[in-house]
Simulated scan of single mutants.
Amino acid sequence: MSDETLRRIVENSWHALEAEQATAERRLRTTPLPVDTEQGPLTAAVDHDGHRHLLIPVPANRKIRTNPDGPVLRLSGRALEDADTYQSYADLMLLEGDFGDLFTGLCVDVLDATRESPHAPIKALYGVLDRWKALFRAQRALLTPDQVVGLFGELTILKRLLERDPGAHRLWHGPSGYRHDFWGGATAVEVKASTSPEGRRPRIHGLDQLEAPAGGELWLAWFRLQRVMSAGVGTGFTELIGQTLYLCDDEQALLDLLAGAGFRPTDTDRYRNMSFLIGEERWYRVTPDFPGLTGEALASAGLTISALDVAYSIDLSGETPVPLPDDEVRAVLDRLPQEST
């Protein structure tokens, strides 16, 4: 039986159980899965609160490790009894419904491992859990505070674009390392954000970041953000991510983009206390006289470009350049999705 078939069986089992009438609070609705052990089959289950479980049968005297035990997964011992049988289980439970697909993949791996070692299902379970833990430990470098601020600025623009077009995630090129954060063809937007209470000094990366697309126009959006700690004040970083996922017509594509930007859903709880207010927002059209250093300007001056990894700051604290009025900002946001259709 292929993993895809097994995955479909597991998903269908949970869906069928979820459709059944909930009973008493401490009871589970269960259905056996097509992988047997010496103690009986592995079992899919759904509890009174709608949480999904994978039950691995174990001898009655077997101690179950209590790891993982966190906001997403919980492993514990559980006994089920009916009129004819009494069976002990290792109960792997999903606490956070947003991770259903990942949990299904984890459970399929457990079923595969148990099928290979039906005499040692608990060892198979621990082995799969440890491999998944090692995978996430190796890949899960958290975003730095400055990276969160920068991503919050980009997601603010993305949300406005998605409100205009649910497929506007296609315009977001920042996670891929493209020189501009948003690009539709003739229009590009570069986003900068800072929590500094003074000045407007965005950091520019590369000699081409302030160069407009060929035959097109470039706009720079600058945000001053204020970190807030009070509940109900400002917009949470993970709240903003949830809003963009809700608006997007291809959630998985957006999750892939977020992963490219360094955010993974498994780290959601690590960012829950990060909320921001937008204290100031300014948009600029990047014209030839806009402050900055570009490869085009250097070439026009007859200079040979041999510098690599150029990064510098520009100062937008004065009266010039003049920021765009709100109606022109809306026009830019309206135009971008139209270019991608």
Rank of each mutant, 00 (worst) to 15 (best):
T104A: 08
A60L: 09
V148K: 12
L28G: 00
L102G: 14
T304M: 11
L218S: 08
T235Y: 01
L55N: 03
L54I: 06
R29G: 01
R78S: 04
Y284K: 03
D84M: 06
T287Y: 06
R29Q: 12
R65I: 07
R224D: 13
S88V: 03
R27Y: 11
V329A: 00
D98M: 10
R282V: 00
C107H: 03
V108F: 06
D289G: 05
T294D: 09
D165Y: 02
I122M: 04
L151N: 06
D36L: 11
D146K: 13
L162V: 11
R285H: 11
F276Q: 07
P321A: 07
R52V: 02
Y312T: 04
H119Y: 00
R74G: 00
V189W: 10
R131V: 11
R164P: 03
T85H: 13
H51G: 05
I204S: 05
L308K: 14
E319C: 03
L95M: 14
W283V: 01
E281C: 06
R270N: 05
P41N: 09
D101A: 15
P265F: 05
W219P: 02
P321F: 10
S230H: 15
T266E: 12
R65E: 05
A141V: 15
D249Q: 12
Q39N: 07
D249V: 01
D165T: 01
R270I: 03
A188Q: 07
L240H: 08
R74V: 08
A79Q: 10
L94P: 03
V35W: 09
I204Q: 06
A221F: 15
F237G: 11
V332N: 03
R115S: 13
P321M: 01
T195G: 13
G105R: 11
L207F: 12
F237A: 08
A186Y: 05
Q39S: 11
P202H: 09
H53M: 05
G177N: 05
E319M: 07
T304V: 13
W219F: 13
A16H: 10
P337L: 04
P288W: 00
L143I: 09
H48F: 15
L143N: 09
R131E: 13
D91K: 03
Y126R: 11
A45V: 02
S76G: 06
A141D: 14
S230K: 15
D84R: 12
A261V: 03
G177H: 07
D250C: 04
S76R: 14
L125V: 11
V72K: 04
E81W: 08
R330L: 12
V191I: 14
G279F: 01
R227C: 08
D289T: 13
P175Y: 09
E25V: 12
S117T: 13
E217G: 07
K192T: 10
V72L: 11
M1R: 12
E211P: 03
Y284C: 02
E18P: 04
G260H: 01
M93V: 09
P265W: 07
P175Q: 08
W183S: 10
W132Q: 09
E328Q: 14
G150M: 10
R282C: 13
I56N: 06
K63E: 09
